[in-house]
Design a binder for these strands. Sequence first.
DNA 1: GAAACCTTTTTGATTATCAAAATAATTAAA
DNA 2: TTTAATTATTTTGATAATCAAAAAGGTTTC
Lengths: 166, 166
Amino acid sequence: MLKQEKKLNSWFVDTFNRISKVEQRALNEGILEEISLNELHTIEAIGIEGPQTMSEVAARLLVTVGTLTISVNRLVKKGFVWRYRPEDDRRVVMVLLTEKGKDAYKLHQDFHGKMIKSVLAELDKNEEKVLLHTMEKIHDFFVALDVSLQEQNKEKAEKINKEKIR
Amino acid sequence: MLKQEKKLNSWFVDTFNRISKVEQRALNEGILEEISLNELHTIEAIGIEGPQTMSEVAARLLVTVGTLTISVNRLVKKGFVWRYRPEDDRRVVMVLLTEKGKDAYKLHQDFHGKMIKSVLAELDKNEEKVLLHTMEKIHDFFVALDVSLQEQNKEKAEKINKEKIR
DNA sequence: GAAACCTTTTTGATTATCAAAATAATTAAA
DNA sequence: TTTAATTATTTTGATAATCAAAAAGGTTTC
């Protein structure tokens, strides 16, 4: 890596580390005191747009459905989430936010909004434009990389499986 | 939030979720197969610049020293890290990377380097310049926010403590 | 109506994390 | 120069997050 790339890299790494700490520390108020950052992200992924299946939410969070089951259990117990099986297809499980869950969602959205606004406040119009452009590129880059790695790992796992069968 | 802010926010959120997944999946090769992403980040924080104290490394990772002790135990057992007490001040514990640890460090740095290069490849010279400037600002912003939230929480904890004593 | 398929939960295991208590070593104070 | 205060780390006890694989409960297909 060149010197500039190194700098950029360490800013990325440290900023990313810090963002989750910041979110965690900001959780110390009101309703949010009784949930973890992860639970909040689950609430965020369920969203206020109406019921979602467990699979949909797990895909959005990039975790297995089993992992989601565990945090949803807790969120239901704490009163942030409702869970039910629809009559038409009783295999699936729908989850949606209760009023309390929606409040938490909104508080977190406000927090994100403030964060974004404060970041943008530091930048001039041109910088803002470049940042938007860059973030889109970075996002797309990671989506593509994620998908291709996922496929690679799948293939690898299948190979191993075949060898086991032999 | 305005439309642009919303976009920026959702890129942040999703990129954020994905980066750790991507790094995890990319770990599925060679030496890196035997360590977790977190352990790799510990290796990254120890670095190749020579021995560091436990406290220094913990501060860099933004975790408690107790947490670090646990992952260093494992890294020592797996042969990535050396640990010793220096003669001149036997309170502190120094950690440093073994050859194997350095190899892992370099592999991970290469991965980061590729990541940075692919992002920069999408930008023209001017955008690159602006991005560097912008990321520095964003980084500093989050460091400042993190520090101030940390202080707030400390004060709050002290208040609660005083009330308990009364 | 049995077999194949789909969706979720459960199980068993590991890792990451913290706060608080315990341990070990040094420095300051009496 | 023993005692107290300070510093640095580890241990302990507890909880949360995670996965893969097995189990359970439904639906479709043949």
